[in-house]
Amino acid sequence: MMIARQDVFPLELNEVCFASGGQRIIERVSLAIDGHVRTVILGANGAGKSVLMRLMHGLLAPNSGAIRWCGQPERAAAQAMVFQRPIMLRTTAIANVAYGLKLAGMGKSERLAHATEALDKVGLAHLATRPARVLSGGEQQRVALARAWALSPQILFLDEPTASLDPGATHEVERVIGEIAASGCKIVMTTHNLGQARRLADEIIFLHHGRVVEYTPASIFFAAPRSPEAASFMKGELP
């Protein structure tokens, strides 16, 4: 699949608001996110992290405000997302990976080659023909990463990708995320695991009650958060 590489960055959010069932979840968020760095969205439960990510990815539409990719309002094609719980179809691991490529219109032999390569990169080539739903949680999440990676996205969203995994599987998933980033893909990820944020983040977006409270390089954020909300979150006072 050769999608002409064109610039999609910066990803700009301008005064984006989102409410659901009368509840205001995202309030007037304005951001400009650049490529090449790994961005981690932090915040307490209910701060709006997942919703913000779904707005960026285009799964939700803002009630007001605008989202632009490199100044254009069209949703960028070369993006992918990995969810907290991997959603596997009832077929083999490799067919799950190839499914996204099939939707993108890639021919059969080409997508099998791509899918094999992607599975190999996440270290699961040996499980290619196993039914995906009977793999362990960690393996399924890596298949989901391979499925996303195979699409050669320019930006990959990850919503709490290790929240349901044990430490060993978490480590493997983090390794793969690092490799995807190293291949030149922009990473945007939510987590409530501070250690993981320290390990992976280049920059931090800190959300509180649907508002962006801080948007700073990770080194500065972890050394000394500027906002009282972030400070108490770091101390573990916020859930």
Binding site: R54, H57, L59, A80, M81, F83, I87, Y99, G100, L103, A104, R147, L151
Partner: peptide
């Protein structure tokens, strides 16, 4: 269960 994933993949 799956609609977000499927839409994310462009279905």
């Amino acid at each position: 269960e799956t609609h977000e994933q499927l839409r994310s993949l462009g279905a």
